[in-house]
C-alpha cells in the first residue's frame, strides 16, 4: 500500500505523542516536554520514543493487545486555541520499514478480533492492496489512542529517573503478563 495522506493525531493524544517522543526537527516546546530531575537534581528532558511514528505504533499495539480502542478523536486545544496536532507525514509512512510495520500491526488487529472465520480474518489481514488507506489508518489510530492514554497514565506523574524506571518496568511487566497469558 502506498500512503497518500499524512497521519494526524489530534487533541490530548497528540499532546501525549509530543510529550514522550523526540522530534529531531525542532526543540520540544515547554508545553510538551517530558521533564524529570536527573541525579544532580537538574531538569532533564526524557525521550521514550525516538519519533512520533514509533510512539504511534507502540501505542497502537498496546491498544490492540489490551483490546481497547478510542474511536472518537479528541480536539483539545493548546494555549493559543489551536487543536493540538501531531502529524506523521505520508513520506514517513511510506518508508519501507514503516509500511511493513503498519501492515504487521493491521494484521494483528484483524487476526486478534473474534469476528468471522479464521480464513476470512486471514484474507482480511493479508489483503493489503484491497484495504482502504483511510480505513486502515483510522482503525489503527483508534487503538493507538487507547494505548497513548495508557502510556500517559504510566509516565505522567514521573518526577525522577526512579519514577521513569518504575514506569518502564510497569510497562514491561504489563507486556510480560500478556506474553504469558492467553485471551479468554
Amino acid at each position: 500500500m502506498t500512503y497518500s495522506l499524512d497521519l494526524r493525531i489530534t487533541g490530548k493524544h497528540a499532546a501525549i505523542i509530543k510529550k514522550y517522543s523526540g522530534d529531531k526537527t525542532k526543540a520540544p516546546s515547554d508545553e510538551f516536554k517530558f521533564v524529570v530531575k536527573d541525579t544532580q537534581g537538574k531538569d532533564k528532558i526524557i525521550t521514550i520514543f525516538s519519533t512520533y511514528f514509533q510512539c504511534f505504533e507502540v501505542s497502537a499495539m498496546l491498544g490492540i493487545v489490551m483490546g481497547e480502542k478510542i474511536e472518537v478523536a479528541d480536539n483539545s486545544t493548546d494555549e493559543t486555541g489551536k487543536i493540538i496536532t501531531a502529524t506523521i507525514l505520508s513520506s514517513m509512512l511510506n518508508q519501507k520499514s514503516s509500511r511493513q510495520n503498519l501492515e504487521r500491526i493491521y494484521a494483528h488487529l484483524i487476526l486478534d478480533r473474534n469476528e468471522g472465520t479464521i480464513d476470512s480474518r486471514i484474507r482480511n489481514a493479508f489483503s493489503f492492496d484491497s484495504v482502504d488507506e483511510k480505513t486502515q489508518l483510522n482503525e489503527i489510530t483508534s487503538y493507538s489512542r487507547a494505548g497513548l492514554e495508557f502510556i500517559d497514565s504510566l509516565f505522567k506523574d514521573c518526577q525522577s529517573y526512579e519514577d521513569v524506571c518504575n514506569s518502564l518496568i510497569a510497562l514491561a511487566d504489563k507486556i510480560n503478563d500478556l506474553l504469558t497469558s492467553k485471551s479468554d
Binding site: E57, V58, V65, R104, H108, I175, L178, L179
Partner: peptide, 14 residues
Amino acid sequence: LLRSLYAASFNKYD
C-alpha cells in the same frame, strides 16, 4: 517494546 507487543498479541490471541 513494539516487538514484545507483537509477541504479546501473538500469544494472547493464540
